[in-house]
Nucleic acid binder design. Structure first.
Lengths: 337, 337
DNA sequence: ACGTCACAGTGAAACGATTCAACAAGTCGA
DNA sequence: TCGACTTGTTGAATCGTTTCACTGTGACGT
């Protein structure tokens, strides 16, 4: 009905009290006598008053939001982290606003600017490139940041991440414990840190096991199609030369390999070849042969990121590196039905 | 270095100009003489000044953000819509902040409150329940809204959506044009509007085709596992009783059916049975047999939502219903390799 | 009867960017 | 030389909320 915005002043007028009292009803109800409080609340309802957040922030000098910049909103890993961060922030009355960099440094930079203008309480960021300079400048201006899914220089920042070498180790050891000795690692570009670390972890497990070996294949992409191509190459080999355990750097690759082995050739999983992926995406459990995988504690990541940010706010010069360990999820593709 | 926030006043002092001039450098550079502009910009750089968005908004009475509330950030349909909306909003200098209701009315309500306090320019929402009352109250207070993926009462709101009956029609007609006559529709709970409409559309196509018929199966969930169960039942039938064309209400169901038919039984797709899904998720194209599907114009949805919102802002009493048609994506699962 | 307290309530000041009426200085034409 | 006009600059007022020093009132103890 009314076009204009209703302010505390209007409410105060209507309820016949001072503006300060209206504010107290909103923020310190215990300081206001029962009767006036009721009158104020009634006025608020009648006028449809809604707090103006911009004015609050301006006065407070700080907003109640936390900025989160992720590499890819389409990636379930990040949406899960985001949801957990949201929940954790909600506990302290903060809200999380999400920015999607899409692996693009310009967009990332743009969101950093936006969030700084909004005077967010802090920034959670899974950086595209090297953002140390920008992030340090931010902190000098009073906006702390926590790196997500990346380990930071402990003297500079706090960070939360998951140890990919442990994940790789778990996957490979799982295959080895099942008696497999001729392993294959199917990865993507080794320049991707995650791929690199997973391979390293797997190699460590293999080195610990006498008589075991592992071939490494480097695909161009971490996709189903790339996995299928790799699978085709392996399946074409003779039984003696074929690996009996395959560890893929992510689930997409693994699903591609599975398609290739089971459909096009007639190999049985896990009898002929045991197969394990990484990430435990939704599809892993509903594959033709449910796929074993390595699950990352995404919710814990998001929650911890928010906690670390709170610590950074209270102790700007203390930093902490939290590294979680991923978890093995054994399904039929390794242990059978 | 400095703990305090730097304001225009500080910049003005440093550059030896008035605050108004600093503001003009930022917002109307052409009004400021070359020399002073340079001095101001230098001061901004030296002091690390960053605009305080809260103060801007307060003065402007309106923020530069648009609120978007989606049912599920994990759903690629919505993330795609969100990204398109983001891009469209960026063109007009606005930013989109994303809220995830997760199908929960309380969370939805919470985000509506939050966005209203933030005085967003407007709200894009794919509502959980019936939000007409809340949304109308919002509009009365000057915050327009556009419904996404739902048709609104044209006298009340604007909306963008996709016509699911057309999608169903396209899918069924495609199968019919390939000569299939014994169709099956595998759906989920018919209470879900999308499922219901897709079935209706398919039935229309069948009714238009002499000699064609369609069985309807109602699964409990729209998942791969439910699809596999349905596939098992169909595959167990004799060739004469088995459908020769299957339309699934979404791609997950279709992938389940595909697993069942090709792996467990030995039916060929599309020779023995043609199969088409709905949504065209990423996995559809990389399935063992690339899956035909119906693609929704998600980017167009997001873009149009932003445009409609702009219209609502300029003409609050005019509403428009935009309904898009989905598109057939024919792949090997119907037309072969 | 008087000082001390606790409690409610008041309203001006502050947060920081933007706007705008007012003014200054310079240019041009007559 | 004067007025008309252009161009650049100034700084007070404004947005809506919260804070806080202050006032008013009544209860209580001595």
């Amino acid at each position: 009905m009314n076009g204009q915005s209703v302010s505390v002043k209007d409410v105060a007028q209507r309820a016949n009290v001072a503006v300060g009292t209206v504010s107290n009803v909103l923020n310190h109800p215990e300081r206001v006598a029962e009767e006036k409080r009721k009158r104020v609340l009634a006025a608020i309802r009648e006028l449809g008053f809604v707090r103006n957040d911009a004015a609050r922030q301006l006065r407070a000098g700080r907003s109640r939001t936390i900025g989160l910049i992720v590499l890819d909103v389409g990636n379930p890993f990040f949406t899960s982290v985001a949801r957990a961060a949201e929940d954790a922030a909600a506990e302290t009355g903060s809200a999380v606003v999400l920015g999607n960099s899409g692996q693009d440094e310009d967009r990332e930079s743009h969101y950093i600017d936006l969030f700084e203008e909004q005077r967010v309480q802090g920034l959670l960021i899974s950086p595209v490139g090297d953002v140390s300079d920008r992030v340090m400048a931010l902190r000098d201006r009073g906006v702390p940041a926590v790196l997500v899914d990346r380990i930071a220089d402990p003297t500079l920042f706090s960070s939360v991440s998951v140890d990919d070498t442990v994940g790789g180790y778990l996957a490979a050891r799982h295959l080895l414990e099942l008696g497999r000795r001729r392993l294959a690692f199917i990865g993507g570009p080794d320049s991707i840190r995650q791929v690199h670390d997973r391979r390293l972890g797997a190699e460590r497990a293999v080195a610990e096991t006498p008589g075991a070996g592992m071939e490494v294949f480097e695909e161009k992409e971490l996709t189903v199609l790339a996995g299928r191509a790799a699978g085709d190459r392996l399946a074409a080999r003779s039984k003696a030369e074929r690996p009996d355990g395959i560890f893929c750097a992510n689930d997409l690759l693994a699903l591609g390999v599975m398609q290739s082995l089971t459909m096009l050739r007639d190999l049985r999983i896990p009898d002929d070849v045991a197969l394990i992926g990484y990430d435990d995406i939704d599809f892993a459990s509903s594959a033709v042969v449910p796929l074993s995988s390595i699950r990352q504690p995404t919710r814990l990541l998001g929650q911890t990121a928010v906690e670390l940010l709170a610590e950074e706010i209270s102790h700007p010069d203390k930093h902490r590196q939290v590294v979680y360990e991923p978890e093995l999820v054994a399904r039929a593709s390794t242990v059978g039905a």
